[in-house]
């Protein structure tokens, strides 16, 4: 409940999972393959996580492990975790992993997340402090949202440290006004 207004949490829960209905449901148009507004028992439907989670609690459906946690991804992470494009698989890989692990009851997901994060975190930190801005754009394309915010935090703390050491203007234009400055001429 503490995350009720949290934007990232809301977007994480929009991630779709494929589920199998154990109970029929009438009057809902969530199954694109059926022509009527009726979901049969045993039909396989893609639904967003927020719906799947609640229905799972009421034992109306069973949830399959999403493709971003399948065997292929696991093998890739084991091989070279720093180079795997996690963003295109799932932009909130870790948050979603934590949520889905308890829903599908797969204990190995936790270990997968931990090992992936540990090895990628090191890479994120070193790149944030050393790499030039141009070289990082390709690297930041494969980071998940959580990793991107860590990456930005590392960069901004480095910038703040440099500013503190060199000195600089104390006051600045408020950031809400946006970066672009309209030309006044």
């Amino acid at each position: 409940m503490e995350k009720y207004y949290d934007i990232d949490d809301i977007i994480t829960e929009e991630e779709t999972v494929s589920v199998i209905f154990q109970k029929a449901a009438s009057g809902v148009g969530i199954d694109p393959s059926s022509e009527t507004d009726f979901v049969e028992v045993g039909s396989k439907v893609e639904v967003p996580f927020w719906l799947a989670h609640e229905l799972q609690l009421r034992q109306a459906i069973s949830v399959n492990v999403p493709t971003c946690f399948n065997q292929k991804t696991r093998l890739e992470i084991q091989a070279d975790s720093a180079c795997v494009d996690l963003r295109s698989r799932c932009p909130y890989f870790y948050e979603f992993g934590c949520k889905i692990a308890s829903t599908v009851g797969d204990r190995t997901i936790g270990f997968l997340l931990l090992s992936a994060f540990k090895s990628r975190y090191k890479e994120v930190l070193t790149k944030a402090h050393t790499a030039a801005l141009t070289a990082t754009s390709r690297f930041s394309m494969i980071l998940t949202k959580e990793e991107t915010s860590l990456y930005e935090a590392a960069q901004s703390s480095m910038a703040a440290f440099k500013k503190w050491r060199m000195g600089g203007p104390r006051f600045q234009r408020a950031s809400v006004l946006g970066r672009k400055r309209k030309s006044t001429d």
Partner: peptide, 8 residues
Amino acid sequence: ADHYGALI
């Protein structure tokens, strides 16, 4: 089925 429909 109606119950689960309403629930959704």
